[in-house]
Structures are given as C-alpha cells and as structure tokens.
C-alpha cells in the first residue's frame, strides 16, 4: 500500500497499463505537451512519445469518434475529454455509436475503449462547466459508466476499464483529485466493474453514494457517529451495470436509506436507486428513501450561491437524521 492522491492513483493506473500493453494509448486535448489539463498525464509524453500520447484538435466528436475507430481495429484507446461538459459535443459517439456497435452488428465489433471525463461543480466555472450529468450516460445499455470515490478504487477500476473489451465512460471528479487514500501498489490490482462496495459498515442507516458523495458521506458518517448513529456507506462505483445487491442487503438490515449524488435529483441516480429499493425491498421500508442532490438550477458563478446549490456534508447528515427520526 502507498498513500497517494486520486490524481496520482489515476495517473499511475494509466502509466502502468501503457507500460504493460503497447496497444494502450491516450488522446485528447492537452494530454501531451501540456501534461493534461488536470496534470494526470504529466511526464507521459517524455516516456511514451507522440505516437501514444496524442494531442488532438479541440474537436470532441473527432476525439471520441476516432478512438472508436481505433478500438474497432484492435487498439485500446483512452480518450480524454477535458470535462464531461464537453461530452455533449461528442454525444452521438458516446451514447449512440460506442454502446450500439457490438449489439447492432451481431457481436462482430469489439470496442475496448475508455473515455475519461471530469465531472462535478464547486469551482466557480458557472453553468456550462460545472455539471454532474453522470446519470444521463448511465441511461444507455451497452455503455459502462464507472465513477470511483476513493484513490484505490480509481486505480483498480481504471485498470479494469482499460483491460475491458467494452466501452467504458470513466468519470472523475475535479474536486476529488486531491483526496488521499491508501492504494495497492500491485500492477495487477483490479477492481471489478459493476460491483458496489461497502466503504463503511453500520447498522442504523444505509447511505448510498458514489464519486464525490462517498467522501462527503464519510464525513457525514463521522458526524452521525458522534450522535450515536452508525451509518453504512455503499459506494456504487459503477452506475451501469448497477449492482444493487449490497444496497438491498444493507437496506434489509437498516430499513432506512439516503441516496446521495452530486448531480440533479430529477431523473437522477437517486431516482433509480430508490425506485429499485422499493421494487426489491418494499417490505423492509421503515421510512421513505431520501434523495440528496444539488439544487435544480444551472450552477451560478458566485461562490456563495454555488455552494448553496451543491451537495454539502450537512445535507447528507440531515437526510440521515430525517430518515431515522422522521
């Protein structure tokens, strides 16, 4: 184990996979000379050269579309989108091409493709650069959508994504890059895609979270513990496939749940998870499932207003109290 930041864990996963397999390469805006907008690929160009660290024009459809083409003919591209907000410029390729080609051509086409994108608000970038639209992408069968909440999972899941023969959208969170944790150093450390994970055990309330809200839920759980409440945190880690088993297993013990996401509530991850809880464990429900999410507004620039809109630790803490005490 080594203690490192999320940024280092992601960078290490990429580096190790590029060392391991010559067919792995990265392309995107400023991944090379610049070293990555978020410095994830710093030093990569010197080590791997221009062939495998490819700066692209600012043209998202070309970035993702050409990565699909390269994947079809046997490579393992990692296409980086500077932020997930720019994924909309490549929407057709992300949701209407990559997830369809294997199925639509009767299994002939394989797409070992990873699209990395940075999600999340809270950095005063205003409405078009601050979204957490993860749930939109999780709507499409054929795409895998992964979003880790800890450095260890980031490393293990990104390595699995790169080794996967399916298209994976790997969503990172900008405000988590500095989050620290213990990370296995094994070069073959893999976390399975499509498996939720208990990040903290507890018997009083189930908090379902992923990505940034895992970190917030950990803080909220510490606060709840001071009140004598033991929260169990289930980290979804991937939104599609969605592994409900640990959620249901936990809920059947606690009978109470909060689902926390950074994105909007309407048609969101919390909507899906809470619906499934009702479908699969209705007899165990002691209180209505609470959804914690950001305010239904385009995010504002003003720092105070933005913080008012996005999910805070206290929101999760308060929601847990509500499902426990009504």
């Amino acid at each position: 184990m080594a203690r490192m930041t999320m940024r280092e864990a992601i960078s290490k996963a990429l580096w190790e996979e590029m060392e391991r397999d010559e067919n792995v390469f990265i392309q995107g805006e400023e991944v090379g000379v610049w070293g990555g907008t978020y410095a994830v690929t710093k030093g990569f160009l010197d080590r791997f050269g221009e062939k495998r660290v490819r700066d692209t024009p600012i043209a998202e459809a070309a970035i993702v579309g050409s990565a699909i083409g390269a994947a079809l003919v046997g490579l393992r591209p990692v296409a980086e989108l500077m932020t997930i907000n720019f994924a909309f410029a490549a929407m057709d390729h992300i949701v209407n091409e990559a997830p369809k080609l294997h199925y639509m051509f009767g299994g002939q086409f394989k797409l070992p493709l990873v699209i990395r994108a940075v999600s999340g608000g809270g950095r005063q970038l205003a409405a078009t650069h601050s979204q957490t639209p993860d749930a939109i992408f999780a709507h499409f069968p054929g795409l895998k959508v992964v979003s880790p909440g800890t450095p260890a999972d980031a490393k293990g899941l990104l390595k699995s994504a790169i080794r996967s023969d399916d298209p994976v959208l790997f969503i990172e969170n900008a405000t988590l890059y500095q989050a620290k944790g213990e990370v296995p150093e094994d070069e073959d450390y893999l976390e399975p895609i499509g498996k939720s994970k208990i990040q903290r055990e507890g018997e009083d309330v189930t908090i379902v979270a992923y990505s940034k809200t895992v970190q917030l839920a950990m803080e909220a759980a510490d606060m709840l513990a001071e009140d004598g409440i033991e929260a169990e945190i289930v980290d979804l880690r991937s939104l599609r496939p969605l592994d409900m088993e640990p959620v249901i297993e936990s809920f059947k013990r606690t009978n109470r749940a909060v689902v926390a996401e950074e994105g909007w509530r309407g048609y969101g991850v919390g909507s899906e998870v809470s619906a499934r809880i009702y479908e699969l464990a209705f007899d165990y429900v002691d209180a209505p499932v609470k959804r914690v999410a950001q305010a239904e507004v385009p995010l504002p620039y003003n720092q105070r207003l933005e913080q008012l809109a996005i999910v805070q630790t206290e929101d999760i803490y308060n929601a847990a109290k509500e499902v426990i005490y009504g």
Partner: peptide, 10 residues
C-alpha cells in the same frame, strides 16, 4: 467519418 479516421490511425 471520425470513426473511419480512427480505423486508419489504427
């Protein structure tokens, strides 16, 4: 069209 470019890149 971009997919074709990627195949040639491959």
């Amino acid at each position: 069209i971009p997919i074709a470019a990627g195949m040639a890149l491959g």
